[in-house]
Design a protein around this nucleic acid. Sequence first.
DNA 1: ACTATATATATTGATATCAATAGAAATTGA
DNA 2: TCAATTTCTATTGATATCAATATATATAGT
Lengths: 148, 148
Amino acid sequence: MSNATEIPFATTLLVRDTCLCLHAQRAARALARLFDDALRPAGLTNGQFSLMMSLNRPEPPPMGPVAKLLAMDQTTLTAALKPLQRRGWVEVFPNPRDKRGRLLRLTPEGMRVLTAALPIWESTHAALEKTLPEGNAERLRQDLQALA
Amino acid sequence: MSNATEIPFATTLLVRDTCLCLHAQRAARALARLFDDALRPAGLTNGQFSLMMSLNRPEPPPMGPVAKLLAMDQTTLTAALKPLQRRGWVEVFPNPRDKRGRLLRLTPEGMRVLTAALPIWESTHAALEKTLPEGNAERLRQDLQALA
DNA sequence: ACTATATATATTGATATCAATAGAAATTGA
DNA sequence: TCAATTTCTATTGATATCAATATATATAGT
């Protein structure tokens, strides 16, 4: 008798077709490319746009809540801030009310960059939604929200 | 008059709540962590599991179609193969019918690793689906498919 | 056959992602 | 108060991701 392990091809097809993680990674990559391409003239990636937009608040937020909002690891946020700080678009400064923490805010130049990017996001997103059947976008948002 | 550019906070909230790209990145990150954690004992990440599973075919596939299946850039696939080749789980060999190309196949050891990972995927995915309302998973798969 | 174009893949450089780990400050419990 | 625990963030190392670019081979048009 053979000791060769083997997985039926039908199982492979089942995993491919049903894996929600794979489906999410695929869609995330495709949408990232779409928005990265569109935002390139503004000098931002989709992730940088989302991060900077999340900093446009009445009060500068600490890092933890921003990482949670973006559903990313806190160490990822630390790293993602680096190029934005280097370009002078985001400031990271001590939290006077918690000496462990730091607060984040857009610089005036960062705000200008974000303002320039906003109409690109609007048109790109509108075009994307137009490719989906009526109501699917809102449904998809709710379904995705349930996972993150 | 002020020349300070500014984006209303309400606009920020709108972008956060409606951006399909952000929603997809968030869900993709959360699911990646879920499956990475589950698959860690098998020595695989979610992406490595998907890639290796996609190589379980009757005929070794070229790189291009595999990259397209995973909706990733071809250069990403080249890079993603490196650690799997190093561990001896995947072989990359010349395509006899096209000297530009290369074909991919699991090694016997790679097949063993994948076989060990499969029940972990099954239980993790079943548990995930159970957290979703009846029918939502299938609907979500279809909606995500439309984006990738 | 020959040239122009297209296709398949690799490399480099920048950024994104997370685990493991560590340090500092805040909080909690006795 | 003080020690134990928790919280907040940074660093390191491995992998993931893509743009820009380069090379080799295949294909198409003449």
